[in-house]
Design a protein around this nucleic acid. Structure first.
Length: 564
RNA sequence: UGGGGGAUCGUCUAGCGGUAGGACGCCGGCCUUUGGAGCCGGCUACCUAGGUUCGAUUCCUAGUCCCCCAGCCA
């Protein structure tokens, strides 16, 4: 049983039981084994937290980072870099245990010759198409390849010539000799090696034959002394093959494969293939586009590693297929940011107001708290003057019943400042749009003053027009609909793009204390939500990404607005 | 109609024979110098049918539904 969260983690229980039983000499060695063919996303974070988390409190426990780079055509060093970067950013450390399956190519090859000598592997000269036909179907057994019974000598010779580059791609494959009639299709003589005359990003042209996952993975685990090889559910059927490979190779160490359900999140595209396509077709700005559930995207959006880890811990580890709601992820970032982010005032859609009875040219420095829940965050001063911006949505000329903010003749408090009353509305004579409000303030109601106790129905945020800094904000929503993962490969993507996924607001006015803010700093804009200075912001430019909105303020505000 | 897995509130999950708990979400209230946060209360669940048992979410049997597998991807 897990403590604290109550979330399940049956693998933690297995590991604990194995340790108690003294299995593997009490050692626990796990590994996170990504193929460097894309950027990591929140689903990988679950696996990372699991694998690294499992060894965290185990004396001598270690989690390896191993790149499963057995397919030269899809892999790239850019992905290797980004993956290492993301794992570190998430707060995990593989120490000196960084490995590459490609480093085992020679060993893997030797094991293969060994299997040929044992008579449990053979070179097949059937075409890919023929192999598929011979494999049978889900309900019909396959049949043996005519090449299945080649002599050991002939197999060895052929395999060596495969390695030497004597054959073109697809001409030969090395297959395990298991059982073409097995009800488990993975056991119908799976392909172990294929010919690929392609340069590998690490081994270059050294090889033209490459081991398949089903062959390389268990052996890599065995070589590294992995005790618990954790993978996702779709590999359950492969476990007998995994065990077979390890058994036939005769390695001293026997790792154990354990499967768990991969993470799905509502409204998020979690397929590497589809993410790649979105990036390549430039339907998003890149792998770090904040609308994407990639680690880089979440990071740019302002998510913290702590929040992601807490989320992964909370959702648990089980074997049933699950789709976690996006709100749960948002809950964790909100909870984390709520403790650490500074509160500032910003006006997304400015409406100018003039306080008629406030002395012209006068500027007051008002004290504002940086985080009401954390006194150590301190205070800051904000300038107050005669002309201010307030949120356009905070004023309605003809307010409905549930609207408590500013309206003609009505009073409202300006946060950290005074109670003001709206005494006039200026409109553009041609369009009828409200261009400016005239207000009066009550000097006795200054925030913090002894006689400032008078209550008003609402408090609104503001910035001084003379001191405000203009910024760009981007409000993000997840890019795509939930079952995108199920749409056919050739479907028109644009049909599925969410038009509301990105809204840019360029005229947003922020309080002067934000000037020079370091990229990546998180703020809570009073009443507007959580924002993060975009990692791409420069000194002379301020761009804020919305990380997640305030819980339900938005919905309530929308509800309070007149519907017509 | 081959094989492998899985079914508990709307969602993610506890439970391993003894009043079905937590979290998200939602609803309501309190509080508040923002309607946020916080606090309090409420909401809804054991796939079905038999059986074993004093008692089954838990054990047995038979079904039902969902997911995965026929790449020389991982």
């Amino acid at each position: 049983m897990t403590e604290g969260t109550g979330a399940s983690n049956f693998i933690r229980d297995i590991v604990a039981a194995d340790r108690a039983a003294g299995k593997h000499g009490g050692r626990v060695v796990t590994r996170f084994p990504p193929e460097p063919n894309g950027y990591l996303h929140i689903g990988h974070a679950k696996s990372i937290c699991l694998n690294f988390g499992l060894v965290q409190d185990v004396p001598g426990g270690i989690c390896h980072l191993r790149f499963d780079d057995t397919n030269p055509t899809t892999e790239d060093p850019e992905y290797v870099r980004s993956i290492q970067d993301d794992v570190r950013w998430l707060g995990f450390d593989w120490k000196d245990k960084l490995f590459f399956a490609s480093d085992y190519f020679e060993q893997l090859y030797e094991f293969a010759e060994g299997m040929i000598r044992k008579g449990v592997a053979y070179v097949d000269s059937l075409t890919a198409e023929e192999i598929r036909l011979y494999r049978g179907t889900l309900t019909e057994p396959g049949k043996n390849s005519p090449y299945r019974d080649r002599s050991i000598g002939e197999n060895l010779d052929l395999f060596r010539r495969m390695r030497a580059g004597e054959f073109p791609d697809g001409a030969q494959v090395l297959r395990a000799k298991i059982d073409m009639a097995s009800p488990n299709i993975n056991l119908r003589d799976p392909v172990l090696y294929r010919i690929r005359h392609a340069a590998h990003y690490r081994t270059g042209a050294a090889w033209c034959i490459y081991p398949a996952y089903d062959y390389a993975h268990p052996l890599s685990d065995a070589i590294e002394g992995i005790t618990h090889s954790i993978c996702t559910l779709e590999f359950e059927d492969h476990r007998p093959l995994y065990d077979w490979i390890v058994e036939q190779a005769g390695t001293p160490h026997r790792p154990q494969q354990i499967e768990f359900a991969r993470l799905n999140i509502s409204f998020a595209v979690m397929s590497k293939r589809k993410l790649l396509e979105l990036v390549e077709k430039k339907l998003v700005a890149g792998w770090d586009d904040p609308r994407l559930p990639t680690i880089k995207g979440l990071r740019r959006r302002g998510y913290t590693p702590e929040a992601i880890r807490a989320f992964c811990e909370h959702i648990g580890v089980a074997k049933r297929d699950a789709v976690v709601e996006m709100q749960l992820l948002e809950h964790f970032i909100r909870e984390d940011l709520n403790k650490r982010s500074l509160r500032v005032m910003a006006v997304l859609k400015p409406l100018k107001i003039v306080i008629d009875n406030y002395p012209e040219g006068s500027v007051e420095e008002l004290v504002a708290v940086n985080n009401p829940e954390n006194a150590s965050a301190g205070t800051r001063t904000i300038p107050f003057a005669r002309t201010l911006y307030i949120e356009r949505d905070d004023f309605l000329e003809d307010p409905p019943k549930q609207f408590f903010r500013l309206a003609p003749g009505r009073e409202v408090r300006l946060r950290y400042a005074y109670i003001i009353k709206c005494v006039g509305v200026t409109k553009d004579p041609r369009t009828g749009d409200i261009t400016e409000l005239h207000c009066t303030y009550d000097p006795a109601t200054k925030s913090g003053a002894a006689e400032a106790q008078r209550k008003v129905k609402a408090t609104i945020h503001w910035v001084s027009t003379a001191h405000a800094i203009e910024a760009e904000v981007r409000l993000y929503n997840p890019l795509l609909i939930a079952d995108l993962a199920k749409i056919p490969a050739d479907h028109d993507w644009t049909t599925y793009l969410n038009p509301q996924s990105l809204e840019r607001i360029t005229g947003c006015q922020v309080e002067p204390s934000l000037k020079g803010t370091a990229p990546g700093t998180r703020f809570q804009f009073e009443r507007l939500g959580y924002f993060c200075t975009d990692l791409s912001s420069t000194a002379d430019q301020m761009v804020f990404n919305r990380t997640v909105s305030l819980k339900d303020a938005w919905a309530k505000i929308e509800k309070a607005k007149p519907s017509r």
